[in-house]
Simulated assay, not measured.
Amino acid sequence: MNFNAERLIHYVDDIFKNVGLSSEDSHIVAESLVAANLRGVDSHGVTRVPIYVKRLIEGAVNPCPDIKVIQESDATLLIDGDDGMGQVVGRKAMEIGIAKTKKSGGVHIGVTRSSHFGAGAYFVKRAVEADMVAFAMSNAPSTMAPWGGIQPYFGTNPYACGIPAGKHEPILLDMATSVVARGKIIMSAQNGTDIPTGWAIDDKGRPTTDSNAALAGSVLPFGGPKGYGIAMMIDIMSGVLTGAGFGPHINNIYGDYDKPQNVGHFFQLIDVNRFMPAELFKQRVDQMIDEIKSSPAAEGVEAIFVPGELENRIKQKRLENGIDLSEEVYEDLKKVGAECGVDIRDYENADTIR
């Protein structure tokens, strides 16, 4: 099925309003999920709606959190997410951080008592629009073994970075510290397809292409011990430092429905203008992008890309042509909508479904 982006946001927005989120918060969640689909990161898009709804209904996520600063200095913030939706908590933390960065020039933001926050690009992009360099990281439930081990300890612990540019689109790096986001393996299992060799091991530590065996085993860190080391650093900053859960002390999003996840996040914001005028910085970033893209490409390589460029191309195509949803994802969305009193057919018309 193919959906117009705005129609899809409207549909998901209404679902979350019907399970207790405010109009503002439901729109944040819907916008962030569809934004991931638009960029081609379907593993973090609307496929997450059913599990988010289940956790809200079961009480694992607080639909009306009191998000507040619990500790502050000139250059630091510690924010309590009150077990709210990760997208809502992360968005509020960024808004508080952006306002503080405009005054102080830079800020480190720790977040405790949050939940799965989706794609990190959604948060850093907001800071980039304010002429800031931004970093976002989060820990996650245990799905990745320490390098050399077979028992999951760390999550896929994502890391995102946003850099303003001038004539070019901003540089947006958004990545898991695993070879692949676990959501892609979940989608493969839902679709009944195998995964490539090198993505994961089974529960005996053996390489596997069976998506279900991979889910029972462990995803692998990118770059071997390097990815493992970075995942550990992210867990320390997001979990240990903030007072949130870390390692196996984070509750599973696909289970533990009676318990908050206690995920932690860590953001860093830097006001470019404290180093040089933002316009000059953007010109220099543009120069770097131009030089990289004009450098000789290897044989068989059509073009050299910078982080976020491929996702921007996908976004433009999907804004023009709609977002393709697999039959499985569409049926899941239809079912959860019906359970929440929202009929997906009301959001379909000749211009919506192609």
Rank of each mutant, 00 (worst) to 15 (best):
I314C: 01
D346H: 08
G308W: 02
D346Q: 13
F305P: 01
K315E: 03
F305E: 09
L333Q: 07
S326I: 09
L319V: 03
E320S: 15
E309Y: 07
I304N: 06
A338K: 11
D346G: 06
R345W: 12
G337H: 06
E309R: 11
D346N: 13
R345Q: 15
L319Q: 15
K334G: 03
E309S: 03
I304D: 01
C340Q: 04
L319I: 12
D343Y: 09
V329M: 01
I344A: 06
V336F: 05
I304Y: 00
L325W: 08
S326Y: 08
I323A: 06
I304T: 12
R313K: 13
A303L: 09
E331L: 13
V336A: 07
G337L: 07
K334S: 14
G341Q: 05
R313M: 11
E311G: 02
E328V: 14
R318P: 05
L333A: 10
I344V: 14
P307W: 03
E309G: 06
I323V: 11
P307K: 04
G308N: 04
K335E: 11
K334W: 00
D346M: 04
R313T: 05
K317F: 11
I304P: 01
L319G: 00
R345E: 14
I344K: 04
N312K: 08
K315F: 11
D343R: 08
A338I: 08
K315Q: 07
D324H: 13
E311Y: 06
R318G: 03
E309I: 07
G322H: 07
E311M: 06
R313E: 05
N312R: 12
I304H: 04
V336S: 06
K315W: 10
G337V: 10
R313V: 08
G322L: 11
E320L: 15
K335P: 00
E331H: 14
L310A: 12
G341H: 06
N321E: 15
K317N: 13
D324P: 09
